[in-house]
């Protein structure tokens, strides 16, 4: 049986060629590993292909794939990092002379791996993709208040690892205010 889908195949292939690197970057942040990112992106892309006719446009396809990645992350326990115990100190301490960018990359990835999936997703969507709280809430299927408090906790974790300045950030203040209210 010939399973080719001419219009769908071409559009999908073009979409993957253009957007795969970008999706993979998001995948790295969501999973913390290269192989985990590839698995997550490809699983999401399979679902995107199946829904291609309904999605209709390449711009919508990227958002659809990203949303699917985030939801797969929350759904699939194998992709959670619950098996890892957050360490008090960074396991990979940059050595003198170590390139600063690489040190930061390693530290941020370690931090991401230690966060619960929900906080990680909020951090990635809110700050990396720069979506609004409402948009993040829509993608995650939670309330904007939940987004706000997860963002505040994630930022606190960043600060605790010395990756942000030690002063309380505006988002944290809002998140704390939201929790107190």
């Amino acid at each position: 049986m010939d399973s080719r889908q001419p219009g769908r195949d071409e559009a999908f292939t073009a979409f993957v060629s253009n957007r795969y690197p970008s999706l993979l970057r998001t995948g790295r942040l969501l999973t913390g590993t290269e192989t985990g990112a590839q698995d997550l992106v490809q699983e999401a892309l399979l679902r995107t292909y199946r829904s291609w006719r309904r999605i209709g446009r390449t711009e919508a396809a990227e958002a659809y794939t990203r949303t699917t990645m985030v939801r797969l992350l929350g759904k699939d326990r194998r992709r959670r990092w619950s098996g890892e115990v957050p360490a008090g100190t960074l396991p990979e301490v940059p050595q003198p002379g170590h390139d600063e960018a690489v040190a930061t990359r390693v530290a941020v990835r370690e931090l991401l791996r230690s966060l619960p999936a929900g906080q990680r997703a909020v951090l990635v969507l809110r700050y990396y993709h720069q979506l609004t709280e409402r948009e993040v809430a829509d993608q995650l299927g939670c309330s904007p208040g939940t987004v706000k408090s997860r963002a505040a906790r994630a930022l606190s974790a960043l600060r605790a690892r010395g990756l942000l300045t030690t002063t309380t950030t505006a988002a944290e203040r809002e998140g704390q205010h939201g929790r107190e209210a």
Binding site: L24, R25, T26, R28, L29, G32, T33, E34, T35, A101, V102, T104, R105, V106, V108, R109, E110, L112, R113, L123, V124, Y127, Y128, Q130, L155, L158, L163, L164, T165, T169, A170, A171
Partner: peptide
């Protein structure tokens, strides 16, 4: 403050999103 926070966090995440020889695997 919020704008500075956002930009700082975005830069951190952008750095972490890039591939490298030691990807954390």
């Amino acid at each position: 403050d919020a704008a500075v926070d956002s930009e700082h966090v975005r830069r951190l995440l952008s750095a972490a999103a890039e591939p490298d020889g030691d990807s954390g695997d």
